[in-house]
Design a binder for these strands. Structure first.
Lengths: 337, 337
DNA sequence: GCGCATTTTGCACGCGCGAGCAAAATAGGT
DNA sequence: ACCTATTTTGCTCGCGCGTGCAAAATGCGC
């Protein structure tokens, strides 16, 4: 490491002169699929190493209209499961040489602006793992140029210009419903998330329909304003307060684990009920802590790694080998139901 | 929305012709501090709006050597508190017109490569909020060009070329120690994180020293291999198994909430102990769920928002109005100790 | 060693914008 | 209205690299 390498950026030209080749050959050496002889490649790489050169991806994306950059829009930082998703996404994307721009979308109004931010960085795709995106946002997002692909991850939309990657919510929730029914529960209550979003899950509809079909009476639903354990806690505490044993639900089917955890805490600490003896609870996601002895949550785990692989295929423009909205997860049976 | 706006990128030139000005005037209109008359700015903005134009930040950063991009390196996705940090960082950075590149750093070996990735995107700074960065990594990172600023967020290093932004861990842990002592606990056990990192916290040293000074006998320490609740659970279960009431610690001082939560679960569900009656627990961070009725964790909350503001000042090159390693948080007293 | 097919290398041009200065327009004073 | 001080606008050149093709080098069969 000589003294001349402060922060002067070293370009492909520098490497080229050192290696005695042209600038283009240098850059070719860094592309796995380029046509270049092994001999010159090693020669170039040695020179690059010596100078500490790495190709400038900004410049590359300017010149080529591919950036290998993906924007990840998140608006739901209250849900610890998002951490798991982010980890898987960033890791697997990086393995495939994509970088991730993390954009914090404050709310639905902000989503458009967030998408704009992404487009200013020439991202190859925007991946939405939040919850508050409505069709209006999706539409204007696609009107805006430069976001070539709009991908809903673990969410779904009918919008023909978006790509949804998610597990088969219907199959998944049917599995849960059948399990709940098989366990002999009689008075379910469905704890749903915000009812305003249209890029959504089919969990509520599926469960309600399935229950109706099997038992011939409806399943009540209460919505929580956000997928937030604290809000779920409050909502459950209020809504179940003062009910007698016989008109209280005997199972709480929750749209995801964040709601389920808040619900369990409310049941225990506000209503003094035992889970699952007095009331059972199911979740969805298998979030961190779902397995902890405190919750022992019966839940459903999505095949996140496979779904991210699907995403990679979409980004590469390959035709995915699994239907993108039909991933299959598994029911994780623990003690809560 | 006319039909011609598919995905053809609209550049400043297009807006310029429509507005009847030069390309440079168009770009000036988008910089708040530029010298431009209000009249032409509104004219330009109208034209831009009509065409759906936004400046291309990639091109801008190529031309200007400032990218308004910050890399956020994270290696600790098991800790839910990271979600809070990410939310604050991305939100406040975006408010100040910085975008965030999220880089998942698998382990210490990978850190160098992660830094390289960041440098390839011409980031203005790399912000480390992970735990596994050792001095070797920091050194090579600074050897690599193009990462102009290396910032440790909520961590500290003696390396003179890095910038640490953190609260005064010594003051913070002293506060906790004094509280623990004032509560009359006699047999503390310090639950520490991995002992190998050198970009670190001073919590353990501070507590141990403080205890020694006050009580004149040492405080034992057990390390956990990672800041992971599950690992903490196992470690605590193993290490406290079979101890009698009198030789068991009466307070577990944990380096952060992730450890504390795992510890609490282990105490309750493996050892059948009551918190805080049989053994008290303190944490650090005030992570999500720390306030939940299940944990009611006595912990210490860092002034994250202020710290991010400090980061923004560093990025802007301003001299911060608070010493960057001296932020003051507050002790949150709940039921666990 | 020759002729051809094939691989490897070099190059003109442009991606969209910014720094910094020169030209033009405007304001202010008399 | 005229001259100067100031603001506003236009422009040259280059940031580091990719595309697509042409030139050079290499390999192969005989």
């Amino acid at each position: 490491m000589t003294q001349d390498d402060f922060t002067e950026t070293v370009t492909a030209d520098d490497v080229a002169t050192l290696a005695g080749v042209s600038r283009w050959t240098v850059n070719r050496a860094f592309k796995p699929e380029a046509s270049i002889s092994e001999k010159t490649r090693t020669k170039v790489m040695a020179a690059a190493q010596q100078l500490g050169y790495v190709p400038d991806l900004q410049a590359a994306s300017l010149a080529s209209d591919r950036s290998n950059l993906v924007a990840l829009l998140v608006d739901d930082f209250a849900n610890p499961h998002k951490l798991v998703m982010m980890e898987k996404l960033t890791r697997i994307l990086r393995q495939n040489r994509w970088d991730t721009l993390l954009v914090n979308t404050l709310d639905a109004e902000d989503a458009t602006s967030a998408l704009l931010t992404a487009s200013q960085r020439r991202v190859d795709a925007a991946v939405l793992i939040g919850v508050q995106f409505d069709d209006q946002v999706l539409k204007t997002a696609l009107g805006a140029r430069r976001v070539r692909k709009l991908i809903l991850f673990a969410r779904q939309s009918e919008n023909p210009n978006t790509i949804s990657i998610c597990c088969d919510d219907q199959a998944a929730m049917t599995t849960i419903a059948d399990y709940v029914i098989a366990q002999g529960y009689q008075r379910p209550l469905f704890l749903a998330g915000p009812q305003t979003v249209s890029a959504h899950l089919h969990r509520k509809e599926t469960f309600v329909a399935r229950w109706q079909a099997a038992k011939d009476h409806p399943c009540p639903v209460i919505p929580v304003g956000a997928y937030d354990p604290d809000l779920a806690y409050q909502t459950v505490a209020e809504r179940l307060q003062g009910l007698t044993d016989s008109n209280r639900p005997d199972v709480l089917v929750c749209e995801n684990d964040a709601l389920a955890m808040g619900a369990i805490d409310a049941l225990r600490y506000e209503l003094g009920l035992q889970v699952p003896q007095d009331i059972a609870v199911t979740g969805f996601d298998d979030a961190p802590l779902a397995a902890s002895p405190h919750y022992r949550l019966t839940t459903y785990r999505q095949p996140l790694a496979d779904m991210v692989q699907g995403l990679v295929q979409v980004l590469k423009g390959e035709t995915p080998d699994t239907p993108l909205t039909g991933f299959e997860g598994e029911l994780i049976i623990r003690a809560s139901a």
